[in-house]
């Protein structure tokens, strides 16, 4: 079973995302900031990471940069999921090594389409 780490400081978003992902047959785990997510990835790399941008302690972009330098850190498919919806932010995320990008608000169909896009489904 594929597993997806949901990284978002909002527990509501994590819950919504989790429900969608479980419907898509993913095992899920959660982290509320980039630092905690990085710790979890160091223990075990997930297949996918759904990643918020603006979070306390360590934001999504910083997390992504660090993740990609970790051993095995190139493996997880990283899908940003953020309210940042301008070209500059999207381009920056993609250059930093994101695989796909979701602009909030999102729904089940969008998550499904984006995960299919990167070959997770």
């Amino acid at each position: 079973m594929k597993n997806c780490l949901v990284v978002d400081d909002s527990s509501v978003i994590r819950k919504v995302a989790r429900r969608i992902l479980e419907d898509l047959a993913f095992e899920t785990s959660e982290a509320e900031d980039g630092m905690k997510a990085l710790d979890m990835c160091r223990k075990e790399m997930p297949s996918a990471i759904l990643l918020d941008w603006n979070m306390p302690v360590m934001d999504g972009l910083e997390f992504l940069a660090q993740l990609r330098r970790e051993p095995g850190g190139e493996k997880p498919k990283v899908v940003f999921c953020t309210t940042e919806n301008d070209v500059a932010h999207i381009a920056k995320a993609m250059r930093a090594g994101a695989d796909e990008y979701i602009m909030k608000p999102f729904d089940r169909e969008i998550v499904e389409a984006k995960f299919a896009e990167v070959g997770l489904i």
Binding site: N85, D86, V87, I90, A91, M94, E100, Y101, I102, M103, F106, D107, E109, I110, A113, K114, E117
Partner: peptide, 23 residues
């Protein structure tokens, strides 16, 4: 709309072939 460009359209195509105007 932002919803419409997220169903089936790879993000790189959005960057390459679209011009943003607000939402």
């Amino acid at each position: 709309s932002q919803f419409e460009v997220q169903r089936g359209l790879p993000i790189n195509h959005l960057l390459k072939h679209f011009v943003q105007n607000g939402d």
